[in-house]
Structures are given as structure tokens and as C-alpha cells.
Design a protein around this nucleic acid. Structure first.
Lengths: 233, 233
DNA sequence: TGTGACTTAAAAGTCATACGTATTGGCTAC
DNA sequence: GTAGCCAATACGTATGACTTTTAAGTCACA
């Protein structure tokens, strides 16, 4: 096993979760606890705990006399970071990345505007630091370093917005950016225009210019969407 | 007991969840499974299943030799509809409603713009129908009827956007609107301007005018935010 | 006195088993 | 063909014993 997680039930989850998310068990499929217990060579107790978690994510529904049935996709808790990760690891990553990027394009500009109003001095400094980091690593195939700064940048913006719902999207953004870098085969260095925009957003936030921060972030989002259009129809 | 849910573990969740969400057990608090089993008069098995669910929501963390500790608020899965409901039922409903309304103000305009492009004829018809329903129930203390139409309206817009992340925010919007009507003591009839805006959004979507749909929805959002400012500082 | 290694005990994790209980699908009777 | 009964089934719960992890206390040694 690659990773056993912390506990057997986590191990079961790491297998069942991605399998269901990938559509390996289509909606309506029925799993039986005893069967799973045999397959994973663990007790029914462990299986039941895993099933409870899947149930709380609305991936499955457990009913007496019938078994554990996979729920239709529309009902899944698609904001659960775990579910997001599982789906991104699966077959419909492109579709998934698009959905998430559209979400980003709606949320991040507003978050940037709020950040311009409420960011602390420390957050402004951190933002500038990450923007500069992006500049520094934007050339010469330093994609990993660039990714780190990019993620940190957007995390800070979401955090600095002061809205906890926005702040919690940091993980989602991280997944999206990471997915883009790692799975969409970014051969080339990042778009210089995007890098510049990040620097400008940091400036706008520091100056407390909400309108400008929002507008610039919107441009970044548009760029991200266009990038998707190029790679996937 | 008022509601026993479907199964004992659900019963335990319905007690522990809201209690934690309400801050009754502050972050860092430690619960012990045996203790909980005694308190709820159920077996440890049941408690463990409930804890697994709370754990998947990142409300708590279970560690050997130490117990089940409540995690800091920033780590909670605040997009989980269940968590949202628990928190709205708790003490910081105002703060919560504000966070969610800000989120709406970011998402719904973009969703409306997409809906203008992608809504089916049926969705357009349904949208108009709900808008008219809002008009009809906007006078004479028909707050409940108005709420139903309002929720349906926004649900359809989010659905028609074609983005599943947006679509899944329907429940959140429902909670927010319901919370506003039921807990913020809306004495008066809804704002006529808001009602008109909804009708206009339905029009814009029907006409495929994305820009206008987005702009109008933004106005609705601004109104909702202002309404909050009046009621809570 | 301070630091390291060793021991201990507390609490979660796992398992096997037995029994409870709701639900479904078929069977019978009308 | 329909209504109602019945039994098989798979989840739900309880229990008790055992394992594993690890925080915390203890003791020896420098």
C-alpha cells in the first residue's frame, strides 16, 4: 500500500471515495457492507464508519434491506475538499477544473475587493512578497516554485477578504492551480501578463483601491478561463 | 426527543453537531467516547460513527490517548449544508448570514449571466413563473408564500447556470433566505424594488441578455447586503 | 539541576459475534 | 388483478475482549 492513512477506515475511504467519485460505481449501484468487509479484509465496524463518512458527503445512502447505494452526482457535496480531490484524481478532471475555475472567477474578484479594504499591513506585505516570488520564478522552468507562490498569493487574498466562506476556498484554489500545473502539462513558462497582473493586484490591495483590485483580479480570472478554452473544448 | 432521525447515530449527531457549532464546546475541548456513550445511552459503536462524521466535517479530530478534540473554527467545512444549518441555528446567526450573503453577492450575478446564455426554455418559463409568484405574494403578509417563490427563483438561476458548483449553492441560498424570513422578523412586506428586479432578471435571462442579467442580479445582491446593514451593525 | 531513556496507563482503534429491526419482494387468497 | 400476509435479507446496535498509539510521569545518570 502506498498510504495507509491513519487507521483502517481511512484506508477504506481512500479506496472507495475515489472509486465512487470516478464513476466506477455509477449512481444506483449497490454495495453491501459484508462484501466490502471481505474485500478490504477488515471488520464490518470499520466499513460502517467509512460508509458513514461517505454518507455525510452525500456520495452514498445506506438503507436497510437494500444496501449502500451510490447517489446521483447532483447530490454530492462537491464543496467538500476531499470530494474535490477525489474527483480531480478521476476521469472528469477537465470538466471539474472548468467548474472550479468558473467558481473562482466569480469569487476571487469580490474577495480581492474586500481584501483591499480589510487587509492588514502584514497581509499586504505577504501579498507583495508572494507576487515578487512569482515574478522571480516566472522564467526558466521553475514551475514548482511558481506554483507555491501562486497558491500562497491567492490564499492570502481570500484570507484577507475577512469573509470566512471565501477564506475556506483557499484549499479549492490550491487544488485547481496544482491540477493545472501538474496534470495539464504546462510546458511553457507562465503567461507574463498574468504575472504582471498579480503584482498589480498586490499594489491595489496595498493602496486600498478596491475597485482596481477587483477589476485586475477579474482579468486574471478571464485569463484562467481562456487558458482552459485553449486546452479543452 | 423531538426527532430521532433515522438511526441512533443520527440522533447523536443532531445533538453534538449543533452544540459544537454553537461554540458550546470551544476549540480545544476534549470529548471522550465512553463518556459520550454514557451520556447518550448508546453503545460506543454508535458514538464512533457519529464522531467519524464530525471528523469528516473537520469539526473535530480524534487522536489516540487524548480523545476527540474540537478543531478551531477556521478549519471547519463551512460549505457543508449540515454545518451551515447547525451554525445558523446557533448563536452567531447574524455573522453567519452576512458571510453567506457576501458569498451570494459574488456568485449569483455570475450565475445569472451564465443562465442567460444556457437556460433552457423550460427553465426560462419556470423562472418567469416564480417571478410572477413573487409579485403576487409580495403584498398582504404572505411572507411564507413569497419565500417559497424567492427560493425557487434563485435555485433555478443557479441550476440554469450549468455550473454544478453554482447549482449546489441552492441549498445555501435557501437557508439564507429562510433564515432572513424566519429569524430576522420581517414584519413588513418585501421591498417592491427587489420584486421588480427579480421580474427583470427573468426577462433578461429569457432574452439571453447576459450582461443585463448579471447587472440586475448584482443589484439584488446589493439590496440584500444593505438590508443586513440595517438590521445588524 | 537538567536531560535523557524507560515505563506506565489512558483512550481510541479493531475485531468477532450475537441479536434487533425495518424493508422488500414474493406468495397466497380472495 | 389486487390486497394483505410472511419470510428472507442487509443494515443497525450492543457487548466484551484485545491491540495500538502516545502523553505523561519516573528514574537514573551526568
Amino acid at each position: 500500500m502506498t498510504t495507509q492513512g491513519r487507521g483502517l477506515h481511512a484506508h477504506v475511504l481512500e479506496n472507495l471515495g475515489p472509486a465512487i467519485a470516478a464513476g466506477e460505481y455509477p449512481p444506483g449501484s449497490v454495495l453491501r457492507t459484508d462484501e466490502l468487509a471481505q474485500r478490504f479484509e477488515v471488520s464490518r465496524t470499520v466499513i460502517r464508519e467509512a460508509v458513514r463518512v461517505l454518507e455525510s458527503m452525500h456520495l452514498v445512502e445506506s438503507r436497510r434491506r437494500v444496501g449502500v447505494t451510490v447517489r446521483p452526482t447532483e447530490q454530492w457535496n462537491v464543496y467538500d475538499p476531499q470530494v474535490i480531490r477525489w474527483r480531480l484524481a478521476g476521469t472528469d478532471r477537465p470538466h471539474q477544473l472548468r467548474s472550479l475555475t468558473v467558481l473562482r472567477s466569480a469569487v476571487e474578484p469580490v474577495a480581492a475587493g474586500l481584501a483591499a479594504r480589510y487587509a492588514t499591513a502584514e497581509q499586504c506585505a505577504a501579498l507583495t512578497e508572494q507576487a515578487l516570488g512569482m515574478v522571480a520564478s516566472s522564467r526558466g522552468q521553475q514551475l514548482e516554485a511558481y506554483l507555491v507562490h501562486d497558491v500562497a498569493f491567492h490564499r492570502i487574498v481570500l484570507q484577507a477578504s475577512g469573509n470566512e466562506m471565501f477564506a475556506r476556498l483557499g484549499d479549492v484554489v490550491a487544488e485547481v492551480l496544482s491540477g493545472r500545473t501538474h496534470h495539464q502539462v504546462m510546458f511553457e513558462d507562465p503567461d507574463p501578463a498574468a504575472v504582471t497582473l498579480h503584482v498589480q493586484v498586490a499594489e491595489a490591495v496595498r493602496e486600498g483601491n478596491a475597485i482596481r483590485a477587483e477589476e485586475l483580479t477579474r482579468e486574471i480570472a478571464v485569463g484562467a478561463l481562456k487558458e482552459l478554452d485553449v486546452l479543452a473544448p
